[in-house]
């Protein structure tokens, strides 16, 4: 189904009373507020002192103090975590997307009995929960001296991301017309050149999607980094946030609020900048998967 047809489907209902519309839209707005308010509420407390906050939590702050931010910053040190997280994200993209694209291309264009068997082995990997292999994965990484290193997290993330993206690339390459590759071959291009010059650029939508969603997956990863990383300076952002969560309570509300703001800020900024892409990517994935 093409975009124009979907656009046509978005046409509004002709019938129905305005009253039901008001109620439904009211519910929808309330739900949206339930998402936004917890993200905004910390600003209400962040400028107060601890004492002020426990006596008058709901009055406006008497003055704007930034000291809570400084305190939360030293407790959470999200800047260090951010660098590690970005390294993990980029590494995960570099280790997930190219192998998946290459394998998907073979499964789509160079089919044989052997490749079909390998494809089903990779497909099966999509259904393996990462929890299942946590212990051996940890042991394996310590044998390869990858524990407490970012590559350990990156390689494990990649292995569990490759199956899904291989499936996506396979169906994408299958949907491309075969004549293009044949034409390139007639012009004397080798297999490699055909892939890198002709087919891969045509698969750009799939690649954009893969890069984006692998990035988000690696960005939010908690479990793998939790078991594989143990020294402070290698902690990812999520580990640092979790560490703050376990060390400091809500009883010091202003500091907690400041930490919540700092913790959520990178994700929210990225989302505001890229939500069109992220939504489009999710939609494409939703309809393909």
């Amino acid at each position: 189904m093409n975009d124009a047809m979907v656009e046509k489907n978005k046409k509004d209902f002709r019938t129905g009373s305005w009253f039901s519309g008001v109620i439904i839209n009211g519910i929808l707005i309330l739900l949206a507020l339930s998402v936004i308010i917890p993200l905004l509420l910390p600003w209400f407390f962040v400028f107060k002192t601890r004492l002020e906050c426990s006596y008058n939590p709901w009055s406006l702050p008497t003055q704007i103090r930034w000291s809570n931010f400084a305190e939360a910053w030293t407790a959470i040190r999200i800047d260090q975590g951010l660098i590690n997280t970005v390294i993990v994200c980029l590494g995960a993209i570099a280790c997930t997307v190219p192998p998946a694209a290459m394998a998907g291309y073979i499964f789509a264009r160079y089919r044989s009995k052997v490749t079909e068997v390998i494809f089903y082995l990779i497909l099966a990997g999509y259904f393996v929960p990462i929890q299942m292999v946590l212990i051996p994965l940890y042991k394996l990484c310590s044998q390869l001296s990858l524990t407490d290193t970012l590559p350990g997290v990156i390689l494990s993330l990649a292995a569990f991301g490759i199956p899904f993206w291989t499936i996506i690339y396979r169906s994408f390459f299958q949907s491309l017309p075969g004549e293009l590759a044949e034409a390139a071959r007639i012009d004397g291009a080798g297999h490699m050149v055909t892939f890198f010059r002709i087919m891969l650029p045509l698969a750009k939508p799939a690649t954009v999607l893969a890069v984006l969603l692998v990035f988000i997956g690696a960005w939010s990863d908690y479990l793998l980094s939790l078991i594989l990383l143990n020294s402070q300076d290698r902690f990812t952002m999520q580990l640092r946030i979790a560490q703050f969560l376990n060390a400091y309570g809500v009883d010091h509300m202003p500091r907690y609020a400041a930490a919540a703001i700092i913790a959520a800020a990178p994700t929210i900024i990225l989302y505001i900048l890229g939500h069109r892409w992220i939504l489009r990517g999710t939609l494409a994935g939703a309809l393909k998967g």
Binding site: C95, P99, A100, I122, P136, L137, K139, L140, A158, I162
Partner: peptide, 23 residues
């Protein structure tokens, strides 16, 4: 074919199928 399948297969063999067997 081998060259193009190798990265994905290696990743899965080392970081998924071997750990599954171990589990």
């Amino acid at each position: 074919k081998i060259f193009f399948l190798l990265p994905a297969v290696l990743f899965l063999a080392v970081f998924m199928y071997y750990p599954i067997k171990e589990t």
